[in-house]
Design a protein around this nucleic acid. Structure first.
Lengths: 229, 229
DNA sequence: CGCGCGCTTGACTAACTTCAAAGATGGTGG
DNA sequence: CCACCATCTTTGAAGTTAGTCAAGCGCGCG
């Protein structure tokens, strides 16, 4: 616990009295000195579902996906984690999903024990974590509407817009994941994903510059298709 | 802020130094003196999506559902809140869904401003909120697997087991919501819900004692159907 | 250059939805 | 207390969307 106390002291100047309105990225920047960097090859697992949750992670480069499997092998991809995204918050004591690298990736690894101890003593840290959790919860609720009620084309349109929002202002979107990954994320098959993308291309809404990159040609049309829920 | 300080003092003996392993119900019991009780008639809204989020709520009696609508009226029911459940945590500044009474209900209403101020100063409160948020996130992830990959019968089986887990040890399950509510929660139509329930009855897995109550006859079979994801 | 994996496309199928109608349920007023 | 009516639920038949199965294409890597 003395180590924790030392960390608390070291971090206090940066974490106390922060406003509550800042974006979620980098609000935990003060934790960086607690983290160690790790590299992953494409398809390499970061952790498995049900493993004891020893670490939080933050993506630095590349992309990570979270997966859950049913007994017969049906797969669901819960989320694609991009640079800046925080992983592992939802774990109580064990991870709730498997995390695997979509592409070669680097992550920062934080001891949960230490971060949690810090959160216990520093309301600023705790509130940042809560804020991340609430934001993830909102996203999950949006995704449930998508999975529950949207058509294949609407799902793809929503997915592309979601990527666009995270990619910054550009209309050139990178799709590091496979069609199967996208399908497993949207509750569709690879084939249906492919057909929907082709249809959006035919309709002049997007351009497929390669199988892993597209350009948004008509964002308004895309938003209409996605249905501003 | 002096009011907050007074509250903090009043609550401190009950909120500081709590262990982290307790169940989520009642860990916020210390907040009860901050809350006021409100009653709702069946179908009455508690708040609407996009309203400014002034309050947290906790269900005391009855059931509340959260709804989101697409532009053309398609509906998704995110969650059924039962007695003890906490509502509104995911709201950043505005509610992310509409909340309506499924049955006549009573809730306790807490000022978000006050609770948040308290959470800022009392790590114990903040951690309880974080814990609730993480638990909800886990549930949301489970629900996304269901919506993404499970068949109609699997969805119904999972739903019944979920209710059973919350209802305590009994195998007699109350279904206060309509078939349409269940369908909108599981990404199915009313008719499909009805057919799946009938099928489970024919298979001897459940008994339908009335249209709003059922009894689990074979919990193992139900768990197999739900697919231990 | 060729090989392998992932993507696209086509034809067919299955699961769920839609449309329709009849059967329960429960709440209300006579 | 009972009958009626609105609403919810069940069931049937036809339609639609997305899934499955299968074949061919193309990009990227060795």
């Amino acid at each position: 616990m003395s180590a924790t106390a030392a960390l608390q002291i070291a971090l206090r100047p940066q974490t106390v009295c922060r406003g509550a309105g800042a974006p979620r990225r980098d609000e935990l920047g003060a934790l960086d000195r607690l983290g160690t960097v790790a590299s992953l090859r494409r398809e390499q697992p970061l952790f498995h579902e049900a493993d004891p949750a020893e670490f939080y992670f933050k993506v630095v480069t590349g992309a990570i996906r979270s997966c859950k499997l049913l007994a017969d092998g049906r797969r669901h991809v819960g989320e694609f984690f991009m640079p800046g995204d925080f992983i592992g918050l939802d774990a109580e004591t064990n991870y709730m999903f498997t995390a695997e690298a979509v592409t070669d990736a680097t992550v920062v690894r934080y001891s949960r024990r230490r971060v949690d101890a810090l959160a216990w003593q520093e309301p600023g840290i705790g509130r940042s974590l809560l804020k991340i959790a609430c934001h993830r919860l909102s996203s999950a609720q949006q995704q449930m509407v998508l999975l529950s009620r949207k058509t294949a084309e609407e799902r793809i349109a929503s997915f592309i817009l979601g990527l666009a929002d995270r990619n910054g202002a550009t209309d050139r979107i990178s799709l590091p994941m496979t069609r199967t990954d996208i399908g497993d994320h949207l509750g569709l098959t690879m084939e249906t994903v492919s057909r929907a993308l082709t249809q959006l291309k035919k309709d002049g809404v997007i351009e497929l510059t390669s199988s892993h990159e597209l350009v948004i040609l008509d964002r308004d049309m895309l938003a209409d298709l996605a249905d501003a829920a």
